[in-house]
Structure formats: C-alpha cells, structure tokens
Design a protein around this nucleic acid. Structure first.
Lengths: 228, 228
DNA sequence: ACCTGAACACCGTTCAAGT
DNA sequence: ACCTGAACACCGTTCAAGT
C-alpha cells in the first residue's frame, strides 16, 4: 500500500501541478472519465482531496490540463511535410490515434471550449490551411471545417468507448451489438441504418476517419481552385 | 405554487413518459443541462423523484428521449428537394438551427452513442447520400463524414453555450472574451489563432457551418466523379 | 506555507411504506 | 398498481484545524 504511494510521490516531496496531472492521466487511462474523482486522485497522491485545489482550479481545469498534455505530445511528434495536405492528414491522424488510445481526450475536446488543447488543435489546422494559400475569405471556414470534423469524430469515439466500457464490451462485441440493434430497426423508418447493419462489423474507423478528411480537403481544394 | 403544478399535471392525471419528457424539455430550455435534475423534474410534475423511474430508465434515457423529440421534429419539417445536395444542406441546417436554439441537444447528440436520435440523423444523411448515387464503396464514408461534421459542430456549439451560460455572457461578450484571450496568445506558439482573433467578433456561425457542409459535399462529389 | 480530512451541498437511484 | 419521499452511495468543493 505504502509502496504504491511512494512510487507516485516521495515521502516528503511537495505536490506539484505536473505531478497531479500525470496522476490524473494514469487514472483516466485505467478507469476512464468516470474513474477520475478527487478522492481517487488524492489517494494516488497520498494526500487529501483538498490539497489538490492548491494547484488545480477545478475538475474542468484538471481535465483540460490532462488533455493538453496529450495534445501537446501529438504536436511535438509532428513531422514536417512538403505538401500541406499531407501535413494536415498526418496531424489529423495523430489526433485520431491519440483519441483512439485515450477516449477521454475526445470527450474533453468537445466539452471544454476555448481551452488550450482546443486552441492547439485549431491553430495547427489553421497553420496548414494557411500554407495551402486558400483565398483569405475561405481560410477561416476551411479551418473550422477540418477542426469541427476532427472534434466531432473524437466526441463520437469517446462516447462509444464510454458505452463499451460501462457494458464491459470489446470492440467486436460493441459493433455486433450495434449491428444487431440496427438490423432490428424498421426498414421503413430507418432504411439506411437498417440496410447498412451487416457491413457494420467489418469496417475500419481509422480508414473512415481519413476518408472524411480527404473529402473535406478535396472540397477545400476544389472550391478554392487550387492547383496541386 | 399549486397552480403552476396543475398546469403541468392535472390533480389526478396519471404520469406518462411523454408528459415527463415534455417537462424535461421545458427545464432543459430554461436552465440548460445543469438544471435538469430529478428533483427539479419531480417538482414540476408535482410528484416525488422516485415516480419518474416508473417511466424512465435513467438520466441518459431521459436525455435521449428529450433529444429524440427535438430531432424527430426537425425530421418532420423536412421538405422534399429535387436535388439531394440541397436536401442534405436543408437537413443539416435544420439540425444546426435546432441545436442553436437548444444547445443541450448538441451535447446529448455527442454523448449518447447508438441512441435513437443519433440513428435518426445518420439515417437521414445516409438516405440523401444514397440518392446521390455515390459509388457503393464510398457510401458509408461519405455518410459518416457529413454525420461526424454535424455532430462535431453540435458538440462545440453546446459547449460554448454552456460556458456562456455559466458566466452569464451573451454571444457578443462570449466572442469578445474569446477574441481577447486569443490575441493575448504567443504569436510564436499560436500564430493562426493569434492572427485571427480580431476577425472573431464578426463571424457568422451558421454561415461557417454551411461552408463546411459545402466543402464536404463538393469533396464527395469530386471524389465520386459525379456529374451534376 | 502547505497539507489534512471532516463537513457541506448536492447529485442519481433505490425501496420500504403508504394509497 | 402506482406514487411518495426518506435513505443511500457518491460526487466536487470548502475550510477550520493542524504541521
């Protein structure tokens, strides 16, 4: 017991914001959003819940800080690409993979507006769009289109993972359950969902995500009449 | 006091699921997601919190039902369009306007995977995409792209509204505050966000949303080599 | 100055007791 | 059969008391 605590915080080591955020990430990775409570966090840090408030304003602040650490990490791993289109795709996939690995990041991104992680993502997309030499009056809309798409997929991904976690399902069981409920739908009321149910179990989230990014980028390119 | 209650539920009128959902929507519209508690809902229905569980499984179920009522309403108001592209745009704008009017719908859409409101939206998009005669292997990806974008914008919209509500800001104050914090950013670290801050206050969310839909649709059309 | 942890104000949900 | 509302288990957050 004592040893587990010492691993995180030395006997006399002072608390710090980064220490707290690091512990929060461990809990989020292990138990998801629902598992991150101030009680659990304090326990891991071998202190009382009140101590955390010396470094963290509130739970949203904590979630934003944890999310920011992950997003900043994706940022750092970014490679330089000759083609800005490739650069956007690489970055988008980076964010997707991070969310895929840690679904709580997706949930935090949709829920915490104007916070630093979101600005980081928006700015990265904006820089690449700017490098495309999109007409000035299309720059903002183009950036927002890509940004909103990334955040939207992230949110859905997070919600799916949360559901799967709460029902103790893996990905296969999750898709099977969805396919089952969709094939039970009324074909009159939900013709598309009903008909697409059988294909559901063997589709690739990552490929779908990339295809969507591709559509948006091609749309931006076509609308802006960019030569590539 | 008593009169206010009678308006919602007659002296001896039995409780019903639709009655409960209707009351929930009133509360959500007035006080947002945070305002919807079983206590507040029971008070409005002139009953105890426990009674609600006879008709509603849990809070997610309640939220999904409320959301579904709104989405179904958008569905019903849908006009037939000769051009499937116009049909998608009209539907997307319908959802956008519904979320704009009731931000909690956006939050519910991102958070409740596989629930009926989401399936409704997905199916509507899928039907229109199918009407475009997109190649079969692109149908799913095309549908998901539009769907994810709509849900993503909805989620962001909801988060913004929640923030504005909690700080008692209107839209102008919200944008002004965002513009201020973005212009204070480090131009080295956030070149795009920093430079775009001044334009922030006079942009049109709805126009941005439509521009994004346009990009995606043009992308789908171009990738599928559809003649229009 | 910083930590501690009991206390507070709230949730969603349950369930024995009433009608 | 349905409602009632106290009770339960749990949150985030605060703050007086300790070191």
């Amino acid at each position: 017991m004592m040893e587990a605590k010492r691993k995180v915080r030395g006997r006399d080591a002072a608390l710090s914001r980064t220490q707290i955020v690091k512990a929060a990430i461990v809990i989020l990775d292990r138990d998801g959003e629902a598992g991150l409570t101030f009680k659990a966090l304090a326990e891991r840090l071998a202190t009382g819940p009140g101590a955390i408030y010396g470094y963290i304003a509130n739970k949203d602040d904590l979630l934003a800080a944890a999310c920011d650490a992950i997003v900043a990490n994706v940022m750092q791993g970014r490679k330089e690409c000759a083609d800005p289109f490739d650069s956007i795709k690489a970055f988008a996939v980076g964010i997707f993979d991070a969310i895929d690995e840690r679904p709580w990041v997706g949930a935090a991104l949709v829920r915490l507006p104007g916070q630093s992680p979101l600005v980081r993502v928006l700015d990265a997309v904006g820089q690449d769009i700017r490098a495309l030499d999109v007409p000035a009056d299309r720059e903002w809309a183009s950036t927002m289109a890509v940004f909103n798409y990334i955040v939207g997929v992230g949110g859905q991904h997070a919600a799916n993972a949360r559901l799967a976690h709460s029902k103790h399902w893996d990905r296969t069981e999750m898709l099977a359950s969805l396919a089952r409920s969709w094939s039970d739908l009324d074909a009159e009321e939900y013709p598309f969902a009903q008909s697409v149910a059988p294909q559901l179990s063997n589709h690739d989230d990552r490929a779908d995500f990339l295809a969507g990014i591709e559509f948006i980028l091609v749309g931006i390119r076509t609308c802006s009449r960019l030569i590539v």
